[in-house]
Every structure is written in C-alpha cells, then in structure tokens.
C-alpha cells in the first residue's frame, strides 16, 4: 500500500486535533468498527495519512486503566518519542502498536490499513520491527545468528531444502548472513559476531537487539526503552545509532525512554503520557516548557503547603 505523502487528509487532521474529533472520525463508516482479529478492518486508500496513527486507544487491565483515549500520529521518517513517568502506559502503548495487546477501544492505523489488533505474526511482513524493554534475544545463538533471525520471516525454503542445501535455501542463507553482517558493521558489532549473545555485556546486547530489528529494514521501528540501564556514554552512543539508522534506512522510529535529556536531543516530536493519558504532544522545546509536563515529572506544589487543617 503506497503512501502518497503530499496531501494532508482528514484522518491525520483528526489526530492533530483530538479535541475536535475526540472519539475518532465522526464520519467513519460502520464497517471500520474494530471487529476482526488481526485483519484490517478497513482501509483508507486515497486519503493520505501518517505512517502510523492511533485513534482513541483505550486499554485497561481489570480495573486499572493503562491507556485512556490515546491519539497519536507518527509521520514517515520522524523520530517520535513517547515519554512519561513509570506506569504512565508507555510500554502498553508499544504493545498495542505491535499487537501484543488488543485495545479495549480504538484502533491502530498502519500504512493505510486499520486494525483493531495489529496481527503480531505478520508484523515483520508489514514492515514493523521492535525491541523489548527487557532484552528478548535468543541466548543460545551467536550475535550473527541472532541478527540473521530478524530475516527469518522472509525465508521461503523448507527444512528439507535447507538440510540438503538445495533449491533457494543456499541463496537465502547467503543473503541473510551478508545482510546481517552489513548491519553488524553499521552498528559496530563485527568484532563480536561469533560470540554467544548471552556472554556480551548488557549495553552490547541492547545494540544487538537493535541490529536484529534493523536487519529487516523496517519502515517502522519501535524501541521500548533502548537505553534503559545504560551508562551516559552508552546512551549517547545508542542515540547516535538510532539517528544514523533513521538517516540511512529512512526508518520511522517510535521510541520510549525514561531519560528526558536523551529524548530531547534525539526526537523530532514527543508525546507525554501520564496515568494513561496524553498530556502533551509537541516538539522537544515546547514539551520542555509545558507546565503539565513539568507537573507530571516534578510533582505539583500543594496548595496547602503549611498543612493547615490536617
């Protein structure tokens, strides 16, 4: 589904002005209601839109509201950060985008197709790759094999062909390995290519996970706290890699991060979540000066500071 990027359609306007169309599109046809699991429930061909947009996403676990009526739009080629205090719903949002969770309400529009739940199994085919907050590498495989596994979704040879080394399996094998090697070189991981991934230091493992996501050259890259637990220098290194990946592969990046400083320098636009609600969505400079964001991060001074009446 090619994306004409030159027109600004109604759909995108709604995402930018949530207060106008607070609950999705007033004009959306009934067949666009979330229904089928993993199947696109409609498409908006002809209407240009963002690469990814979330419309009215709500999600709760039991009585706990994780996400409340979130709209988010991600333009092609931008680095989009989602920040917020612990428990703000950032990871839930990524899990909704990647189809791990099904939202209670709202839908995800990816490249023109609308989903009630993004089909996880077809995510790679849709050009979406992600990393995980807690490392999700394959410990028993080497660095090279971990990265090459990012191309497994493309493999069409069957096991018999692979075992006997006939048919298309050889070409595929060569192709995956050479592409994996290129990514390793790009992320400066070549020196550890044959190491078991579990034996690497944490910062490098994070980078291997980025490599595994990048090797498929996704159009949308979801990074769930790519710099969590890193030292300051590792963080700036990782930020540089993320930016380089965007520039080189024209990948759109959605990233979640705790470290506001890193995010400010890295992202084009930032959405701020607090208690499952989006409280700000703007450029880094605007977010930095937004009173609600400052309140959410630093807390609000009580009106009753001297404690009178308690």
């Amino acid at each position: 589904m090619p994306l004409p990027s030159y027109t600004l359609g109604v759909m995108e306007a709604s995402a930018y002005a949530p207060e106008v169309f607070a609950h999705g599109l007033p004009s959306s046809p009934p067949e666009q209601q979330p229904a089928a699991n993993g199947e696109p429930i409609g498409s908006v061909a002809g209407v240009a839109s963002a690469l990814l947009s979330l419309q009215g996403i709500s999600l709760s676990f039991g009585g706990v509201v994780a996400l409340a009526d979130i709209d988010l739009s991600v333009r092609s080629g931008e680095i989009r950060a989602i920040i917020g205090p612990n428990g703000a719903g950032k990871s839930s949002l990524i899990n909704v985008i990647s189809g791990v969770y099904r939202p209670d309400r709202g839908h995800v529009k990816l490249d023109g197709a609308v989903y009630a739940q993004v089909p996880t199994q077809r995510l790679a085919h849709l050009g979406v790759a992600r990393t995980f907050q807690n490392l999700a590498l394959f410990k028993g495989l080497s660095v090279l094999d971990n990265v090459a596994s990012g191309l497994a979704y493309k493999v069409r040879s069957n096991f018999a062909g692979q075992v006997l080394g006939i048919g298309r399996s050889r070409g595929e094998q060569r192709d995956s390995l050479s592409r994996a090697e290129q990514i390793l070189e790009f992320l400066d991981l070549t020196s550890v290519r044959d190491r078991l991934v579990g034996t690497l230091p944490y910062g490098l493992q994070k980078r291997v996970e980025l490599a595994r996501a990048l090797v498929a050259q996704p159009r949308l890259l979801l990074l769930d706290e790519p710099m969590a637990g890193m030292t300051a220098s590792e963080k700036s290194e990782m930020a540089a890699f993320v930016r380089a990946a965007r520039d080189r592969f024209a990948t759109t990046v959605v990233l979640i991060e705790h470290d506001v400083g890193v995010v400010m320098g890295l992202s084009d636009r930032i959405a701020v979540l607090d208690y499952g609600r989006k409280i700000a969505d703007a450029t880094p400079d605007e977010v930095r000066n937004d009173q609600r964001v400052i309140d959410a991060y630093l807390g609000v001074a009580s009106d009753n500071e001297d404690g009178a009446g308690i």
Partner: peptide, 28 residues
C-alpha cells in the same frame, strides 16, 4: 545440517524467547 540451518535457528529462537520469535515473524 538441520540444526545449523535457518530452521534450526528458528527452533532455538522459539526455545529462547517465544514472544520475540513471533514478533520477528518466525511462524511459531
């Protein structure tokens, strides 16, 4: 030969992290 092929790597991927394997498109 099998365990060092892509299929063998898929086996290990599913063993080590099934969710990640599904997300990167291995037919679990």
């Amino acid at each position: 030969r099998l365990v060092s092929s892509q299929t063998g790597r898929n086996f290990i991927a599913i063993r080590d992290n099934e969710t990640a394997a599904r997300i990167i498109g291995i037919p679990v």
